[in-house]
Design a protein around this nucleic acid. Structure first.
Length: 484
RNA sequence: GACCCCAUCGUCCAGUGGCCUAGGACGGCGCCCUUUCACGGCGCAAACACGGGUUCGACUCCCGUUGGGGUCACCA
């Protein structure tokens, strides 16, 4: 049996912005690919552009990765630390003749492009400096004329077998002699990427298909440098509902924003996996381990996908339903404190109460933050009655019913859902009323709302004294409204 | 504009020449359950972009058209 080299993949974000779902999804694909084949998942921060890079974005990127559970394997590589390394390879390129100096100034190049555009001609670099004599180069260099280094693209066609789309090719006529080193000697993106991917031993480059044009340039670089070319897989883009590329300008969310809004990382992970890749089954909810076990590149889908937040939320609901009351309580507790509904101390001493509240509300929450809004009346009596419902339920006819219920509840020996139901049913029957006639005003009296968990369960959790008190308060409210 | 990629319900995915009167999920609609809201159950509407081939037979293969996306920086 031939021994396979270890699979090594990486995610290479640049800290020039936030982490959108596309970057997250690419990271997830790389992570799963590595784990499936027992390989390594690496992180490289592409922070060579000082102008745009902001260290705070690095933290945000790493936080997002940790949140999603994407543990990377070796030390993080920072490109800014490796500039000297890249220069060495630029020199090598010039020595071997694959690279050549170009003295064209940005102004000249811009003018060339303008002209080409106006004449609807070729926008590529016109190779003005390709065949300068050694003498001329020497003279202009000693004169201090600034220059960049370009890669000479050989004639022919560049092709490779993509993991996602199969064979891809591009004629050299469509690739310009791109710049590999700027006039200050620093390396550009494509050069740095190729050098790092080679030095890091990357075997598979899985990235968005917006990189396809870069890939052709990079393959030329691999060949010029004499490096082995890795396998490439260009996964489809994730698009906005309007089919445009995601962008912060258009209000697309940072991955961490979803976390703050109460999306569970496992829901995000699971949902994102199904964008551009499919287990090819009728099931959609899978654990990370199951996904890793099934994750092979032949299940990639080549077409772009629209990100549907509603479906993400549906996944989230599913994951919330599957979590224990305790685990949910751990997540909800700080939010309740933050909202000013209770204190850390109060919750710590009444953890069981919180758990029961969560249990009663679990199937009604779409996001973790929903629990705050859904549960407020369990933590404070300071709530408003739904005006429309109050007009309908808090009537003079209903007042004696609330009073009677309050009295009966107060004298109840044990205050459980079963005894509450029995008590309420008995009162309804005694008055010759349907239960709903009692249930609706009661729900409004104790919660201020028309919707919520099962009434009996809700009253039991709230506890006898609170329920009696709120019923009496509502009764008083009826007097106030009718005899101001 | 040039080059590249893509093309099944509104959206995400199945479908790899006959099993398709095209399947699942989200969303929508309806019914059931029910004290409400959810959950759950059942059902309905909803798609193979178009035109040519290839073939006994195309959603599936080939070509073209159209449409969408991406890339065309001394950014990454």
């Amino acid at each position: 049996m031939k021994s396979q080299p270890e699979v090594r993949v990486r995610i290479a974000p640049s800290p020039s912005g936030y982490v959108h779902v596309g970057t997250a999804r690419t990271a997830i694909f790389n992570y799963m690919f590595a784990r499936h084949y027992g390989g390594k998942f690496l992180v490289r921060i592409e922070n060579t552009d000082e102008e745009r890079s902001d260290p705070s974005f690095i933290d945000a990127i790493l936080s997002a990765m940790k949140w999603l559970g994407l543990e990377w394997d070796e030390d993080i590589i920072y490109q800014a630390d490796r500039c000297d390394l890249y220069r060495k390879y630029v020199d090598e390129l010039v020595k071997s003749g694959h690279g050549y100096p170009c003295f064209c100034t940005p102004e000249v190049l811009a003018a060339d492009r303008e002209k080409a555009k106006a004449e609807k001609g070729d926008m590529r670099y016109n190779r003005r400096c390709l065949n300068l004599s050694a003498d001329e180069i020497a003279v202009r260099k000693t004169a201090g004329e600034p220059f960049v280094v370009r890669l000479r693209i050989p004639e022919g066609e560049c092709r490779f077998d993509d993991l996602v789309s199969g064979e891809l090719s591009r004629s050299s006529n469509d690739i310009e002699d791109f710049i590999v080193a700027r006039s200050d000697g620093s390396a550009t993106y494509n050069l740095a990427v190729v050098v790092d991917d080679h030095l890091m031993g990357i075997t598979h480059v899985i990235r968005g298909n917006d990189h396809i044009t870069n890939t052709f340039k990079q393959i030329h670089l691999y060949r010029a440098l004499g490096f082995e070319v890795p396998q490439f897989g260009h996964v489809p883009m994730i698009l906005r509902t309007d089919k445009k590329k995601v962008s912060k300008r258009l209000g697309d969310k940072d991955v961490l924003q979803y976390r703050n809004e109460g999306i569970l990382p496992e829901a995000m992970f699971n949902y994102l996996c199904l964008l551009g890749w499919s287990p090819k089954t009728d099931r959609e909810i899978y654990s990370v381990d199951e996904l890793i076990a099934m994750f092979t590149p032949d299940n990639f889908n080549p077409s772009n996908a629209v990100f549907d937040e509603e479906k993400l939320i549906a996944f989230n609901q599913e994951y919330i339903a599957g979590k224990s009351d305790h685990d949910l309580a751990v997540m909800v507790a700080p939010l309740l404190v933050e909202a000013g509904l209770t204190t850390k101390y109060w919750l710590e001493t009444r953890w069981d109460y919180l758990r029961r509240v969560i249990g009663a509300l679990k199937l009604r929450a779409r996001k973790i933050v929903d629990f705050v809004e859904l549960s407020s009346y369990f933590f404070t009596s300071d709530f408003k009655y739904d005006p429309e419902a109050a007009a309908k339920q808090f009537t003079p006819e209903n007042k004696p019913l609330l009073d009677a219920l309050a009295d009966r509840f107060e004298s109840l020996e044990s205050f459980t859902a079963a005894s509450i139901e029995q008590c309420l049913a008995a009162l309804a029957e005694g008055k010759g009323l349907k239960r709903g006639k009692l249930i609706h005003p009661t729900r409004l009296a104790v919660s201020g709302r028309t919707a919520g968990p099962s009434l009996y369960e809700m009253l039991e959790i709230l506890s006898q004294p609170i329920v009696v008190e709120r019923l009496r308060r509502a009764s008083a409210q009826i007097d106030l409204t009718n005899n101001p």
